[in-house]
Amino acid sequence: MATKAVCVLKGDGPVQGIINFEQKESNGPVKVWGSIKGLTEGLHGFHVHEFGDNTAGCTSAGPHFNPLSRKHGGPKDEERHVGDLGNVTADKDGVADVSIEDSVISLSGDHCIIGRTLVVHEKADDLGKGGNEESTKTGNAGSRLACGVIGIAQ
């Protein structure tokens, strides 16, 4: 089992970053940390998408990683996509320092995120509470600013 993974985020604009993942036990939580720069100040949706395909930019990554066919939600919700990591918060300089621990994603097994795409979005994720159909699919997080395929790390 891989215990570490990394993702280099890039987009068409100024947004870029490096996100690290570490899972010490196969059924334990995954620590997610790193930094994203070039964002507007505020909240930005942060999700693992189904495919590791960036051939047409971030759009070819498909929908959120959702092997259990659930509705979109927040990272602490029972009803959520596996890939729903909530929001990252950018400061006035456009930098989001990421520090998350998640017990639904994994670096092995059915919820493995390796080979899938991590995406940072234009807007805040409403965590499935926006009151419309799009909220239950995407959290109304808007366009995909930057993305990268999650790969095994040393």
Score class of each variant (00 low, 15 high):
Leu85Glu: 02
Gly148Cys: 05
Gly83Trp: 15
Glu78Phe: 08
Ile18Arg: 07
Thr136Arg: 05
Val6Glu: 10
His121Leu: 13
Trp33Cys: 14
Thr3Phe: 10
Gln16Ser: 13
Thr55Trp: 07
Ser35Tyr: 05
Ile152Trp: 11
His72Leu: 10
Gly86Val: 05
Glu133Asp: 13
Asn132Arg: 10
Asn66Phe: 03
Gly11Phe: 00
Gly62Pro: 01
Glu133Gly: 09
Ile19Lys: 03
Ala141Tyr: 09
His44Lys: 02
Trp33Lys: 12
Val95Ala: 07
Cys58Phe: 14
Phe21Leu: 08
Gly38Lys: 02
Pro75Asn: 06
Ala61Pro: 14
Pro63Phe: 05
Asp125Met: 04
Ile36Ser: 02
Lys129Pro: 05
Gly131Pro: 09
Val104Ala: 10
Thr55Ser: 14
Asp53Leu: 05
His81Pro: 05
Ser35Leu: 13
Asn27Lys: 05
Pro75Ser: 11
Leu107Phe: 04
Thr59Gln: 10
Arg144Glu: 08
Thr136His: 11
Lys24Gly: 10
Ser135Gln: 09
Lys129Phe: 09
Leu127Asp: 14
Val120Leu: 11
Ile18Trp: 03
Lys123Thr: 08
Asn54Val: 10
Ile36Leu: 10
Asn27Val: 13
Ala56Cys: 08
Gly142Tyr: 06
Glu133Val: 12
Gly34Thr: 00
Gln23Thr: 04
Gly148Asn: 02
Leu39Asn: 03
Asp84Met: 08
Leu43Pro: 13
Thr117Leu: 12
Ile114Asn: 03
Asn140Phe: 08
Pro75Leu: 14
Asp12Glu: 13
Trp33Ala: 11
Lys24Asp: 08
Arg80Cys: 06
Gln23Gly: 00
Lys123Val: 08
Gly148Pro: 03
Val6Ile: 15
Ile19Asn: 00
Ile113Ser: 01
Lys76Ile: 14
Phe46Gly: 03
Gly115Tyr: 00
Pro75Trp: 14
Asp12Thr: 05
Ser143Trp: 07
His121Gln: 09
Leu127Asn: 10
Lys92Thr: 09
Gly45Cys: 08
Asp53Val: 12
Val88Ile: 15
Ser35Asn: 12
Gly73Trp: 02
Asp126Tyr: 06
Asp93Cys: 08
Gln16Tyr: 08
Lys129Val: 09
Gly142Ala: 12
Ile152Glu: 02
Arg70Asp: 03
Glu134Cys: 14
Glu122Phe: 04
Asn66Tyr: 08
Val119Cys: 12
His121Ala: 10
Gly94Phe: 00
Cys7Ile: 00
Pro75Tyr: 11
Cys58Tyr: 08
Val30Met: 00
Ala146Gly: 06
Val149Leu: 13
Thr136Asp: 11
Val104Gln: 05
Leu118Ser: 00
Lys24Cys: 07
Glu78Arg: 13
Val120Trp: 01
Gly57Asp: 04
Val6Phe: 09
Asp91Met: 10
Val30Lys: 01
Phe21Tyr: 04
Ala56Val: 10
Phe51Leu: 10
Thr136Gly: 07
Ile18Met: 14
Lys123Phe: 12
Ser108Lys: 11
Val15Tyr: 02
Asp126Cys: 11
Leu9His: 03
Gly128Ser: 10
Val48Ala: 02
Asp84Ile: 03
Pro67Arg: 12
Ser143Tyr: 09
His111Tyr: 11
Trp33Ser: 12
Val30Asp: 02
Asp84Glu: 09
Val30Phe: 03
Ala153Cys: 13
Gly62Ser: 08
Ser26Asn: 07
Glu133Gln: 09
Gly128Cys: 15
Lys123Leu: 13
Ile105Thr: 10
Thr55Asn: 13
Ile113Asp: 03
Ala96Thr: 06
Glu79Asn: 10
